[in-house]
Design a protein around this nucleic acid. Structure first.
Lengths: 203, 203
DNA sequence: CGTATTATTGATCACGCGATCAATAAGCCC
DNA sequence: GGGCTTATTGATCGCGTGATCAATAATACG
């Protein structure tokens, strides 16, 4: 006794949205075929009509998420308007760190996926690619900084700097998800600015 | 038809060791009562004789792990022999980051627990406490650095510096666990040293 | 030596999971 | 309108899980 049909290509999106709703509420562990189906208001069987397996659903959801978070940020031409290379990279870091608390839900999910990825090659690939992409988004900034003052930044490679910047932001993400009350964006950024003696990039 | 008995207080430790072996091999998701029992060479029922539930087994395993990793490092008097405050904190960071790749197995498990903690209050408390403890292990170093040159480090608090140091190390942990081949300890440390213009602390 | 205690077993229960599939209603084309 | 395709349903299977428990062997004790 089938129910009403949805407009073409709508159901797949419906199911993904439902999967996200469930994941946002109960984390990845709560994403089961039945839970997603209930959330979407469809039968459990339909989930397997659109996705070959739950694993593939999860991969599709990850892509769905990435397309709406990482890719949503315009990494290519980030902050092209700020002249000073040091200020530019500091501003990029500040922007990302300040963004984290607002997206805590998604950051949490991202970590869930990362754990899941240790058992699921396809997910591991997707996560690695996203992290690599994120690290590499700092490379243009890092390169212009290193080349702006070769003497000051002797012994520092653009790759290394990009990696360090990514490490810092990802470490902040960890602290924020774990215990938001203990993390102060402004304090961390002020400390970082003082550390590297860069012009303190203000909001 | 019971089997041979173990010497007093031995079984509990046996089961914890078996749980660690399973977790090291299959991650936290693979830690089931049956898997642990098989690894320990005992029956499934015995696990519930020593641990009221699997959750409590996991909490006990986390304590077991923490007692053998974080607590094993002597945070209190770390690097007291190095005179210069900047070199001292750099050396502390280097030591921790260099330690990560060797303990990848445990670091991975720690992240598993961290994710699990978002759903399990007791585990969350334990993890938070461990992370707070880790961050605070930098405080004495941070304080002596800040007070060593008030002018140079103006606007920087010891709390902020400790938090930034912890963020950096934890971010490195994330990159190492995710993709060890992409992470170069020496490169990151050299970059960090160049960034803060501290004396490059060598091994 | 016999008896009470306790550690250990393995069968068993209920549950939720992923996945399959025949039945069936909705939409489409002629 | 009739028939063909396809989206949708819900019952169902097998599996692994956490947990329970009566039965039982090992030990300690009087």
């Amino acid at each position: 006794m089938p129910g009403p049909r949805a407009p073409a290509e709508q159901r797949r999106e419906d199911i993904l949205r439902a999967a996200f709703a469930v994941a946002a509420r109960e984390r990845l562990g709560g994403v089961s075929a039945r839970a997603v189906a209930a959330e979407a208001g469809v039968s459990a069987g339909l989930v397997f009509f659109y996705f070959a397996s739950i694993d593939q659903l999860l991969v599709a959801l990850l892509d769905w998420l990435l397309a709406r978070t990482i890719a949503a940020t315009d990494f290519a031409n980030r902050l092209a308007d700020v002249a000073d290379p040091a200020a530019r990279i500091m501003l990029a870091i500040r922007r990302d760190v300040a963004w984290l608390p607002k997206q805590r839900e998604r950051v949490e999910l991202f970590f869930d996926y990362w754990v899941l990825g240790t058992r699921h090659p396809a997910i591991r690939r997707a996560i690695r690619h996203a992290l690599d992409q994120y690290r590499d988004s700092f490379r243009p900034l890092a390169e212009s900084l290193v080349s702006s003052d070769a003497e000051r930044y002797a012994g520092m490679s653009a790759e290394g700097l990009a990696s360090v910047a990514a490490s810092f932001v990802e470490g902040c993400a960890l602290q924020i998800v774990m215990d938001p009350s203990q993390f102060d964006v402004e304090r961390s950024m002020a400390t970082l600015a003082s550390l590297v003696r860069a012009p303190a990039a203000v909001a």
